[in-house]
Design a protein around this nucleic acid. Structure first.
Length: 129
DNA sequence: CAATTGTTTCGTC
DNA sequence: GACGAAACAATTG
């Protein structure tokens, strides 16, 4: 986020909206975020993130499906997901690998993966692993 | 198990 | 800046 955006966000009460939506999401997994985000990044990354935001809660998508939807390759999709600037709001946790769980926030194991599983479980998704 | 894929990143010129 | 090589949260043969 640019400094200017931060100042503007504060002025417009976007922080308040964001935290409100966070609380709503934690109470109700079917809630979908509507806060306007400042997604920089390359064109491809924004395409991937936009696609992520269209995944309904409680549903998962494989990297392969995303790749086909975007006319790209699974590896590239994973790359873009990894650079997701806003985890949770942009639900990169709804993207799983074909034979496992995939990764989260740059990690393929450890506590971050646990967080991903927690989020999915919160939405009623059971993952094998 | 190896080959392959698209995209980003890093090192060099 | 431009260019080539390596790396990556995977999938397919």
């Amino acid at each position: 986020m640019s400094d200017r955006a931060v100042a503007e966000g504060a002025r417009n009460g976007l922080f308040q909206q964001a935290s409100l939506e966070f609380m709503r999401y934690f109470e109700d997994p079917t809630f979908m975020f509507s806060v306007p985000l400042e997604l920089g990044g390359t064109l491809f990354q924004r395409k991937v993130w936009a696609a992520l935001r269209r995944i309904p809660p409680g549903t998962t998508c494989s990297y392969g499906e995303m790749a086909r939807r975007l006319g790209s390759s699974p590896r590239a999709v994973g790359n873009a997901c990894r650079r997701n600037p806003c985890p949770v709001i942009v639900p990169c946790h709804r993207v799983v690998s074909a034979n496992g769980l995939g990764g989260y926030a740059g990690a393929t194991g450890g506590p971050l993966l646990a967080r991903k599983r927690w989020l999915l479980a919160h939405e009623g998704v059971i993952v094998d692993g």
